[in-house]
């Protein structure tokens, strides 16, 4: 347990589980020092510097030192502020959704597929319904990838069939069966009138109807407005939310796809 001098009254009860109460560390335990930078839409003058200090105070920094202020054009000023925060964080109160599979590197993914399947893993992807936004599915599948990571197409051991935008569910099912897909990836960006949920349910029902449970491909959906906990309710195996990278998807697939019969 970290010893903190002078905890503010009522700020923190003793941690109930295994946990630690900590403050940011500048150069001394418990000093609470942080650094932030931001821009205010104000011309650079004393008022702007005072406004920056006021913002830092409202963010909980006290004292706050505006160490740098630079005009950016006539209407904006950039600030760097150092200061002390009094907040404590309790690691016991942190909630995380743990990944239930190991995150693999690029070479490990190919190796794992070779070992587990002894053939290429087949992935069929699409944006279903009227959704024309392929940005998500392309980020995961196309070699160009996302956030500096290459898409699934990059892997020698993954065969990617990307059907693109506005694919009807029956066609997705047809292609997935013809390709003997191990997994079907569906991206849904448009959420008007809960279209993403309706489309996903339609898709999972179609696959349940079209194939025996042991032959059904893994059904994976992704999009910025999905709640990762809704997989069961929507009848799919996994939901990926905003910010998911291709490696996370590939690692998941490698871990969950049925191994060679």
């Amino acid at each position: 347990m970290t010893q903190l001098s002078d905890p503010p009254p009522g700020a923190a009860a003793p941690p109930s589980r295994e946990g630690r109460l900590v403050r940011p560390y500048g150069d001394t335990t418990g000093d609470g020092m942080v650094q932030v930078s931001f821009t205010l839409p104000l011309p650079h003058d004393k008022v702007a510097e005072g406004a920056a200090e006021q913002l830092a105070h409202k963010m909980g920094m006290d004292p706050a030192m505006v160490v740098h202020a630079k005009p950016m054009g006539p209407d904006f000023t950039f600030f760097v502020v150092y200061g002390k925060v009094r907040h404590l964080v309790d690691t016991a109160a942190v909630e995380v959704v743990e990944r239930d599979y190991p995150l693999l590197g690029s070479k490990e993914i190919d190796l794992a597929i070779r070992e587990r399947l002894r053939r290429r893993l087949v992935v069929v992807g699409a944006c279903i319904g009227t959704d024309a936004h392929t940005v998500g599915i392309d980020a995961i599948l196309n070699i160009k990838g996302f956030a500096g990571e290459k898409g699934l197409e990059y892997h020698r051991e993954i065969k990617v069939v990307n059907l693109g935008a506005q694919v009807a569910v029956p066609r997705l099912v047809e292609v997935a069966l013809a390709e003997r897909a191990d997994a079907v990836l569906v991206s849904q960006v448009v959420t008007q009138r809960d279209a993403h949920l309706l489309n996903t349910r339609e898709m999972s029902a179609a696959f349940r109807e079209a194939c025996a449970p042991e032959r059904r491909p893994l059904l994976v959906v992704g999009g910025p407005r999905f709640d990762e906990r809704m997989a069961g309710e929507l009848g799919v195996d996994r939901i990926f939310a905003r910010g998911t990278t291709p490696a996370e998807v590939a690692s998941y697939l490698v871990h969950h796809v049925r191994s060679a019969a």
Partner: peptide, 11 residues
């Protein structure tokens, strides 16, 4: 690869 650049990032 982090966020869309801020005005300050460009400066």
């Amino acid at each position: 690869a982090v966020v869309t650049p801020f005005l300050s990032d460009r400066d």
